[in-house]
């Protein structure tokens, strides 16, 4: 089974979904992600879905669950890069992904996390490395 890579950028975990998200892959991502949040102590999660052409009601719920789980672990989730067609499908399905924050692209998503939560993202990596070489 394919797995979705989870990349650590400072205090933020970046999940870029580049494959067709089948149900089991999505569930595996959900559990992998919660473990990684605990392991790394990340404060923010960026889920990039700009490559996803289809989001069904199940995947929509997984995103909401990911956001809720992260919230419990004190990490904010931002889903970024949703395509217009996907957004329209979700609306037609009556799903509004309540509780999930969204942004147009990774850059804007990172900005939201940095601004609202005072998180340190990619641009601060050098600073982090200087503070604590182990965490970079």
């Amino acid at each position: 089974m394919d797995r979705v890579p989870i990349l650590k950028l400072g205090d933020v975990l970046l999940v870029s979904i580049q494959i067709d998200l089948e149900d089991e892959v999505a569930l595996a991502l959900q559990s992998d992600l919660s473990e990684r949040i605990v392991d790394t102590g990340a404060r923010g999660v960026l889920v990039d879905i700009s490559a996803l052409e289809i989001v069904d009601s199940f995947i929509g719920r997984v995103f909401a669950d990911i956001a809720a789980t992260s919230q419990v672990l004190d990490a904010e989730t931002v889903v970024v890069g949703m395509r217009p067609a996907v957004a329209m499908t979700l609306v037609d399905l009556g799903l509004s992904l309540g509780g999930v924050r969204t942004a147009l692209n990774v850059e804007k998503g990172l900005k939201i996390l940095r601004k609202d939560l005072g998180l340190r993202g990619v641009e601060d990596l050098e600073g982090i490395a200087a503070d604590d070489p182990g965490s970079a």
Binding site: V78, V80, M82, P84, V86, A87, M88, L90, V91, D92, S96, L97, R101, T102, A103, L104, K108, G109
Partner: peptide
């Protein structure tokens, strides 16, 4: 409302 929700899903 549908239009607004769709725009929100995209982060606007």
């Amino acid at each position: 409302l549908k239009t607004v929700v769709a725009a929100r899903l995209m982060g606007t």
